[in-house]
């Protein structure tokens, strides 16, 4: 079946099977391999994308269900080659080890800061509790979100 949606700002069309998952369509049809598959059952957050601006799990979303809607993956955050404050902060804090979980954390950090530009540490940790990282121990990830929130304050997105 034909599915039309907006992907990282561009209108796209693709034929999908009813039982195809969004994550597989993103990775295999559009080559957007930033979105990662790990647990496949909603536990780890590696596959998080924004659907109509809200963070959802692409491993539990039927591709058919995004018809007429808007999807943003980690590839769609940086505009014209410039990193977002969140992406910069992750690099500066060394919040990345193997990197597999990071696209999910970056999407969550973007989403958190849009909702709540000055989160406390407890609010940050609660917001990312659906994302697992097997390497970092989360300390630098939390630091990166805090640093990004300072950048956000200086230059809110869209300014």
């Amino acid at each position: 079946m034909r599915v039309r949606f907006k992907l990282n700002g561009e209108p796209v069309e693709v034929d999908v099977e009813p039982n195809e998952l969004l994550i597989n369509v993103l990775r295999e049809r559009f080559g957007l391999t930033g979105t990662k598959y790990a647990c496949g059952i909603g536990e780890c957050g590696a596959c998080t994308v924004l659907l109509d601006g809200e963070p959802v799990l692409s491993c539990l979303t039927l591709a058919a269900d995004v018809d007429g809607h808007e999807v943003v993956t980690v590839e769609g955050l940086a505009k014209s080659g410039e990193l977002t404050p969140v992406q910069r902060a992750f690099i500066e804090e060394g919040a990345v080890q193997c990197g597999y979980c990071i696209p999910g954390f970056v999407i969550m950090a973007e989403s958190l800061l849009r909702e709540n530009p000055e989160p406390t540490e407890a609010e940050i940790r609660d917001y990312i509790r659906g994302n697992l990282c097997r390497c970092t121990g989360y300390v630098n990830i939390v630091k990166a979100v805090k640093r990004a929130s300072k950048y956000f304050k200086l230059a809110p997105p869209g300014s």
Partner: peptide, 9 residues
């Protein structure tokens, strides 16, 4: 319940 993503779905 769950995490933010699960609650957004």
């Amino acid at each position: 319940m769950g995490g933010v993503q699960v609650r957004c779905m």
